[in-house]
């Protein structure tokens, strides 16, 4: 499989006044095309920072971040925006839908930004995606008329509508109940299988982790290991039991 994301010796530091806070302290990671991987770790371990760097919405302090073979540090702001539009789909923890647009319009928005399809083609594509996420009947609803699970499904449809090579999901199930969360992960997995889209999602929930092909474990801004889903779940449960005792 081809490498689609390559992270080498990446350091990310934030300045809080005069204090420099390291979020990532030399991370190395390779993600192959079509992988369905999870980034796991406790809060503050650097999961979101790593996803932000892969998603080109933030820049590394040091090191190389390469997406689809392009060194993101060498790209202009405009080129990075185009890369996000055409290559990456985002699913956010709190859905981040445009509240004044309908479900249909939210999903259609990336296509309008792309300007590749005409009206009829856009309609066909949006309808297909909404059917896939089971929300065609809700196409004319506004986000505030939907449940959390439905909103996340809209976010998934929006992330996939422009046919991205990579979908990044930051704790996609964190704001959902377990049943809805499982359904969302199933949906993502199905799309990964059917379309071959690479999914990278962060979570600290072992019930979600178990669906991943592999789990990248982050702790204190460093990758502590890459495990299979079963190993990761066992690891998480062990940590939880240790905490409980």
């Amino acid at each position: 499989m081809d490498t689609i994301v390559s992270i080498r010796d990446v350091v990310k530091e934030y300045s809080l006044g005069k204090v420099v806070v390291p979020a990532l302290r030399g991370v190395n990671l390779e993600v192959k095309k079509g992988e369905f991987i999870s980034i796991a770790g406790p809060s503050g371990s650097g999961k979101t920072t790593l996803l932000n760097l892969i998603g080109c919405v933030d820049t590394a302090t040091r090191g190389l971040v390469s997406v689809t073979g392009q060194d993101t540090a060498q790209l202009s702001e405009s080129a990075l925006t185009r890369l996000r539009l055409n290559t990456i789909g985002f699913i956010f923890q709190s859905f981040n839908l445009v509240s004044v647009l309908t479900v249909y319009q939210n999903v259609e928005f990336p296509l309008l930004l792309q300007r590749k399809l005409n009206g009829a083609q856009r309609k066909e594509r949006v309808t297909q995606l909404l059917t896939q996420v089971g929300l065609l009947d809700h196409a004319k609803h506004r986000p505030n008329e939907l449940s959390g699970g439905q909103r996340q499904r809209v976010a998934i449809a929006r992330a996939l509508v422009a046919d991205p090579q990579i979908v990044l999901a930051d704790e996609p199930t964190a704001n959902l109940d377990s049943a809805t969360g499982a359904a969302i992960i199933d949906l993502m997995k199905e799309l990964n299988h059917t379309k071959g889209t690479t999914f990278i999602f962060s979570t600290h929930d072992h019930r979600v982790m178990q669906h991943a092909q592999s789990v990248v474990r982050l702790a204190d801004g460093l990758i502590s290991g890459r495990e299979t889903a079963a190993q990761a779940v066992a690891h998480s449960l062990g940590v939880e039991q240790a905490k409980a005792s």
Partner: peptide, 13 residues
């Protein structure tokens, strides 16, 4: 936040 989201999904400045 909405601006951030729109920029993230590919809206130019």
């Amino acid at each position: 936040r909405e601006i951030g989201t729109l920029r993230a999904i590919g809206m130019q400045r």
